[in-house]
Design a protein around this nucleic acid. Structure first.
Length: 513
RNA sequence: GCGAAAGUAGCUCAGGGGUAGAGCAUCACCUUGCCAAGGUGAGGGUCGAGGGUUCGAAUCCCUUUUUUCGCUCCA
């Protein structure tokens, strides 16, 4: 455990020291759980985004990409269920310092009484044997009726209070039902507070004409509301997908673990529209397709696993996570959800517009089902970055810090180093830089001993170092050093482009899928 | 949000009531080298922020903020 923490600490300081991630507004003490991507981080993030986009949009002729706005009509979030689902009434017990969802406390109370009824039924069943009529027993036994009455009134009142946002009454209800904290056993409760996971803002300059808006808590709805527009203008035939990469915002109560859980984050999502009844098949297909994408990066199959959801969200009929082994353990990296026709049906209901597809094969219209793949770009960044950072023991007894990024994602593909900064070596090195930069992001470094420069590039994840020496002036060859093996080979300058391309070209990597 | 620990230079950290140190990193010059740590010199910090105690606070006290961990919640 201590090792895990140490490794995570290394990840944090390496990310800062090498210009990958900074805390937002650092000179003002920072802003909690908000981070900026620095010069190298922005490149790495861009490369991950591109790798995903190519795999999802460019390589699938039935998937198109869009870029919808962060602001959406407020009713979108009523239809999607976020206004309800993202509003949790929470209450703390002052003695145990535990926090609970107030509605869950009341529901647990109801469940307890329910258990009492079951006990009563079981007892009676034993007593009466075959002659036992359960329905009649439930309808007539006074103790059962009394308990059922208790449950009904409690839940009814809870529902009503929540609907009216009457949190004081929820608190009173908890008092009146004598609900105690499961840990401390005390009734020393705080007031019930409402936590809204969505960020609110306003559109319109003057107060009276302003309209309440939310910053989107997920990008998916931008796809659903555009479903028909895209389907019609793109002449898309089911099955087809719409993909999108964009920022989403959640006002997390607890946002932690570096960039793993941020308040502002970037999602890479694809909604795949299918014929109702085929969702199981597509769900399995996308699970398989997505894990292949991850594995193509070569970060080790043992670092991934599937986690099937038992408790499903309000919109899903099947859901699984792809979990990755982060420095703090296996955590969700990507979600694959079978969302049924929940979203489109809800938008039909709330907008009054038909969101259906006419299927020529079936000769009928229907609301398509949806299978979603949704990956956090920031999480993917953290997965790649933390997995790549290693301290490697060398044969000569020293250690080197290497960022073994998949070369396709590395922010800098090659560093060009003159062995010494005289005798015309810098000039030739610069010529190579000028040539290569049309195709790759490259760096030039002439400071310090060349060995040290190699190590510097290792720590930054640069896959290739190209060294210009005196021989280069004579026969137009250079040495090219590989980051992971530290091996060098002498090659013609004219071959450099092909050699680098072979290793960093996205095509080579995507073909591994 | 509750609890715990921490915040001193870009990074890692030492110091601990008398106005800041080390190693590495950075910059300049020398050394001209193929796997970090050669020489000389330089820059960089109001010790997270605010307030209090004191003749004097980085050091003691209070508040606050940020980070990590546990609980909780979640993508």
């Amino acid at each position: 455990m201590a090792n895990q923490e140490d490794q995570f600490k290394k990840v944090l300081s390496h990310a800062k020291e090498y210009g990958y991630v900074f805390q937002s507004s650092e000179i003002y003490d920072g802003l909690s759980a908000v981070y900026d991507y620095a010069q190298n981080g922005a490149e790495l993030k861009k490369n991950i985004r591109e790798y995903w986009w190519k795999a999802m949009v460019q390589m699938n002729d039935n998937i198109v990409g869009i870029d919808s706005a962060i602001f959406m009509h407020p009713t979108v979030w009523k239809a999607s269920g976020h206004v309800d689902a993202f509003n949790d009434p929470l209450i703390d017990n002052k003695d145990s310092k535990k926090r609970y969802r107030a509605d869950v406390l009341v529901e647990d109370y109801a469940a307890k009484i329910e258990a009492k009824i079951d006990k009563e039924v079981a007892k009676a069943e034993k007593r009466f044997g075959d002659a036992f009529d359960k329905a009649q027993f439930l309808a007539t036994n006074p103790r059962v009726l009394e308990n059922q009455e208790k449950i009904d009134t409690a839940l009814k009142r809870l529902g009503k209070s929540l609907e009216n946002e009457d949190l004081v009454d929820v608190r009173n209800l908890i008092d009146e039902l004598d609900i105690v904290c499961p840990i401390s056993g005390s009734k020393n409760w705080t007031d019930v507070k409402q936590f809204n996971l969505m960020f609110g803002t306003k559109i319109g300059a003057s107060a009276d004409s302003a309209m309440d808006l939310y910053l989107r808590p997920e990008t998916a709805q931008g796809i659903f509301v555009n479903f028909l527009n895209v389907q019609k203008t793109g002449r898309m035939k089911i099955p087809f997908g719409i993909a999108q990469v964009g920022k989403a915002f959640r006002n997390e109560i607890v946002a932690r673990q570096f960039i793993f859980r941020q308040r502002e984050f970037e999602q890479m999502e694809m909604q795949f529209f299918i014929q109702p009844g085929t969702q199981q098949e597509w769900y399995e297909k996308w699970k398989e397709n997505r894990i292949k994408w991850h594995l193509s990066l070569g970060m080790g199959a043992e670092n991934y696993r599937f986690h099937d959801h038992e408790k499903l969200a309000h919109y899903a009929d099947a859901a699984a996570d792809i979990e990755f082994k982060f420095p703090f353990g296996f955590k969700e990296l990507e979600g694959i959800h079978s969302r049924t026709d929940f979203d489109l049906s809800q938008h039909e209901k709330f907008s009054g517009k038909k969101l259906q597809y006419f299927d020529n094969d079936l000769q009928k219209s229907y609301v398509p089902y949806v299978v979603e793949t949704s990956i956090g770009l920031d999480r993917m960044f953290l997965a790649v970055f933390s997995n790549s950072l290693v301290d490697e023991a060398l044969e000569n007894g020293t250690t080197r810090t290497v960022l073994k990024l998949p070369s396709v994602l590395a922010p800098t593909k090659a560093a060009i180093l003159p062995l010494v900064k005289k005798d015309g070596l810098p000039e030739l090195a610069n010529e190579i830089v000028e040539d290569l930069k049309w195709d790759f992001s490259v760096a030039y470094d002439e400071k310090d001993a060349v060995g040290r420069r190699y190590r510097r590039q290792d720590a930054n994840g640069t896959p290739f170092c190209i060294t210009v020496d005196h021989q280069s002036l004579e026969d137009k060859t250079v040495t090219i050093r590989h980051r992971d093996s530290m091996e060098q080979e002498r090659v013609a300058i004219s071959d450099l482009k092909a050699i680098i391309a072979k290793d960093v070209d996205m095509k080579q990597w995507l073909m591994k899928m």
